[in-house]
Design a protein around this nucleic acid. Structure first.
Lengths: 246, 246
DNA sequence: CGAAACTTTGATATTTCTCAAGTTTAGTGG
DNA sequence: CCACTAAACTTGAGAAATATCAAAGTTTCG
């Protein structure tokens, strides 16, 4: 067996936009491409973890269900992401298609075997695991002590970066997930997410066009309101009060 | 280089109580034992990440500082835990002694070299990374959608398990950290932690004796109030209303 | 075109935070 | 060994953020 239940990003994010699978993703190329329609579940939390998956097209949400019905989304996957690496026998979360998804699977056993044949790919596995931990810890910080506005701004900036990398028009954020997905990812309610977007739009910071697309008008203001994160200003600067905790 | 910035639990938790270092911890035995007094910092967030560390005695908190002064504790370490594994050049968090700590260090380079010489230890690194991711995701769930009471009860149960494993008297929780540490770990304020403990004590579920020790009177009630987690009842059962989100 | 799903908006409730003051504990030095 | 001090913890009252409940608007898709 191999590695804990988790999601793995491609080693070279940029390369993921190219159609030639590289890195760990190349270990899946021999298998047939499968498809999942929006809302369809690729694998269930609690299922025996027999396969790893790589996303070829579309977007996926990673969910954990609490027995009382509450749901937490621990991440979103896109083209090139690998998911299901695990030392555990069962998946610790389910993976659900957000839109039309195509993916490939590989049995754990075969994955391991191929990994042995390609020792150059092994460090990538470690790198991915480490990045995964870093991402999870960042999310812990976000959930621990950030206000709704800070959470949403952080999220939108991360999404903006991803959208840009995927070749969207500049300053356009692609949001393949619903508001409820965003809420469950940020530890908020759908109403709070909606209100916060409305507020930011009212301040001229962004403009919510179609449901799954947001235009960023003042990136610097978004960065400020995100509280931490990467700086990379390019326009006007506003004042951004903050509060909360200690 | 090797592995992302994170903390690693010993492969066999039980064995950690034995003084013979095993697993990854054995890669440190040749180095001198260093000591840190309470409050002293073993390494700083942002420092160049040149070493890995193993805790030999005492307890350590893992902190991330936000630029506005807020602090998040992402974990606590104890005897046998390894910390500092990273592909990154700099530590993503600092490690601070809670009490009198003794530890050993090892350079990354030497650690890697020794790991090559002991290929049987390599899967342990993966296992640890995976466990780390799983733990971080559990914490995300906790921070995402659990009430103060649920968080505290989860935390106390986890600590109870750890205390038992370390050979404390049954039902005694050892808390080497302060209330503020607990608050920063659970994403609450110190006042909320205090009030919640008081409330649980008032309900006869636990009894706060000395500052760093709590006696569990009704473990099953604690499990119920924790909301999820491992079941393992052994006494009375109460009703536990819950609420919050969706 | 109409229904269903998704989103926004509003009014109110609740939790938890904040600020402030008091109490206990642990540690120090006389 | 005790008194004293600083740190840690508890408790209370009020404020703020966000959740909840409810209803009305949109968009999407058949």
């Amino acid at each position: 067996m191999l590695a804990s239940n988790l999601t793995i990003r491609p080693l070279f994010e940029e390369a993921a936009t190219v159609d030639e699978p590289c890195g760990l993703a190349m270990l899946f190329v021999r298998n047939p491409i499968e498809r999942a329609a929006p809302g369809q579940i690729v694998f269930f939390e609690g299922d025996r973890a027999l396969h790893l998956f790589v996303i070829r097209e579309g977007n996926v949400r990673i969910c954990r269900q609490l027995h009382d019905g509450r749901r937490v989304i621990t991440g979103f996957l896109a083209k090139g992401d690998v998911v299901g690496v695990s030392f555990k026998n069962r998946y610790l979360y389910s993976a659900e298609a957000l839109d039309n998804v195509s993916f490939q699977r590989q049995t754990k056993v075969e994955f391991e075997k191929q990994l042995l044949a390609r020792p150059d790919l092994r460090p990538m596995l470690l790198t991915q695991l480490c990045d995964e931990v870093a991402a999870a810890q960042d999310q812990m910080v976000l959930l621990s002590c950030r206000s709704a506005e800070e959470r949403l701004c952080s999220f939108l900036l991360a999404r903006l970066q991803k959208s840009m990398a995927q070749g969207c028009e500049p300053n356009v954020i692609n949001l393949p997930m619903t508001r409820l997905d965003i809420a469950d990812y940020l530890g908020l309610t759908i109403e709070t997410v909606s209100r916060t977007i409305t507020k930011l739009a009212g301040q001229g910071i962004l403009s919510a066009g179609r449901r799954h697309e947001i235009l960023v008008l003042k990136k610097s203001a978004l960065v400020q309101r995100a509280g931490e994160d990467e700086a990379d200003g390019d326009d006007t600067v506003d004042d951004a009060p903050r509060h909360y905790h200690h």
